[in-house]
Nucleic acid binder design. Sequence first.
DNA 1: GCAAGGGTATGAATCGTTTCACAACGAGGT
DNA 2: ACCTCGTTGTGAAACGATTCATACCCTTGC
Lengths: 338, 338
Amino acid sequence: MAVSVREVAARAGVSVGTVSNVLNRPEQVKPETVARVRAAIDALGYVPNDAARQLRAGRSQSLALLVLDVGNPFFTDVARGAEKRAAEEGLTVLLANSDESAEREAGHLDVFERQRVSGVLISPVDGDYGRLEELRRHGIPVVLVDRGADQARFASVSVDDVEGGRLAARHLLERGCRRLAFVGGPLRIGQVADRFQGASAAVAEHGSATIQLLGTDEMSLDEGRRVGEALRPLIRETGVDGIVAANDLLAIGVERALLFGPDPIRVPDEVALVGYDDISFAASAVVPISSVRQPRELIGATAVELLLAEASRPDTEAPRHVVYAPELVVRDSSTRSA
Amino acid sequence: MAVSVREVAARAGVSVGTVSNVLNRPEQVKPETVARVRAAIDALGYVPNDAARQLRAGRSQSLALLVLDVGNPFFTDVARGAEKRAAEEGLTVLLANSDESAEREAGHLDVFERQRVSGVLISPVDGDYGRLEELRRHGIPVVLVDRGADQARFASVSVDDVEGGRLAARHLLERGCRRLAFVGGPLRIGQVADRFQGASAAVAEHGSATIQLLGTDEMSLDEGRRVGEALRPLIRETGVDGIVAANDLLAIGVERALLFGPDPIRVPDEVALVGYDDISFAASAVVPISSVRQPRELIGATAVELLLAEASRPDTEAPRHVVYAPELVVRDSSTRSA
DNA sequence: GCAAGGGTATGAATCGTTTCACAACGAGGT
DNA sequence: ACCTCGTTGTGAAACGATTCATACCCTTGC
């Protein structure tokens, strides 16, 4: 059933070592022999067995990418970037999903370690960095994705969320907004806290401006709608004139609630709105939503890069950290037509 | 660096065979010995090497799921279902993405064969079933996902798209619609053709009703908006009163174009609308959209099921095909308030 | 006292590939 | 003739887990 090098060798009239050489260092084998071996491979339909190769090599040709949510376009784009870069190194990416569950995360990490993957890229469920330490002790390099500064002991690639929040708020301030609202939560999510902090800092630079926090339990469309309803009186009575949402789903929900409730509020004329992530739905919302874009594919590619560096990093050297700058994409939701 | 059974055995004062037995058939080992071996495993931080196990077993503990688009919620839900069912069998699912590219698909299949995965679940890029035949000849079972009837030689799990189209159209007819439009394309996509065919059949059963096809180049929000504009005169002048969209993205785009163009058209009062797939955005559209739901997780679980059956299927028996019935989810977009 | 049999443990063979020290061979130099 | 080199190919060892025929010990029954 299974065709092995031995049979290929027999058919081509060479030794197994030569077959292996044809596969891995063809330049060291006489062209004529290469041809004969290749012919035998084709004739028999030989496919090398990775398990055997790995066993010998001690390490697999795959690296793992473990994300919080495969359903999130942010992560699928990161994955795309990682795959491209990994392919250049002859590596395959195993994509896995922890679904924000520590248990599933642990399960996947176990499998990866048994597989002796050549590295793990992970956007961790918060908490248990101990398991990651252990992986590294066992010789498997680890790179944190989209979670950075707080964990200096691991290499990481992330985006400056403080700066992103600042960009969003500053943009609104430049458009003349003075009473801002920040929608997002829970604050224990590092990204959310950073974005709020950045927005607050921008506001602080403007003597006359204020910002208030409207917390959410999750970052979904429905929560956005709920908060949108709560915003209505704030806009009409308290004079809120600008909204920063911690992600685009919230922003879209907020926009809908404002535009289509009883007594509609015009966006951007009565209140300006900026989201975060620049998902494709943001651009095609009823009023296209300004948003803060992150270099998603680049994040993935960089993660692979750091992994390679990590693999050959001497203990005397500290892990590397890469932080990218976010970028503001301006659309109608923050561009006052009047 | 790498801890192996040998070292565990030495530390526990037993043979390597016994360590293996502790891991795989603990009931055959004296409890006291089990404890001693377990202690040694913990002390040394031993993690079994899957490559070695696979090499011996001839087959990996993983199965592959190769989808057209990981960004599509349909497939991530299928993946979730497959993972659950696979976990029950002690199998891991490798999720990979062909991005509708035949080349990427071929690349992934090569890797999977080298890995000796225990099976491949695939929603194939159309065309090259030859490679799949070859995989099977090499002893790797194959199950087609979401592509069925046309390829009797492979086991498959799919949803009856003709019936889905029929459901959607019949629902509109029952609501009193008589001039229907079907939005979708290109028609070479099997699912689209089937849905249109089903809708047409439903219309044919009604003497007085008609249906016309409005083709699209792709199934996106933007195409939906474009077609929505084109629909405006048809509704106002030709009297189109019901729309079936081939997927929810199109439906959402159409709805937006109708509601927010100059001279807005009310949904469902002036025209009723049904989408397809029941993605989460459908329920939270401005006017929530009726849609045809497919049992996504069940599809994944069934695919794994068929794979197991396929692995032990005698040549004398034909591959199995499972076809699920779609389900109509009624929301406001097709429920005339007047 | 001995054979039979059940419960435990052993260790060598095996899976398929890669690697590496070495052999075979011919060409060129002296 | 002899030595040296370079090119090309060889084949056995190694990777780490599993398996299986075998051995050992202890009861049990006669």
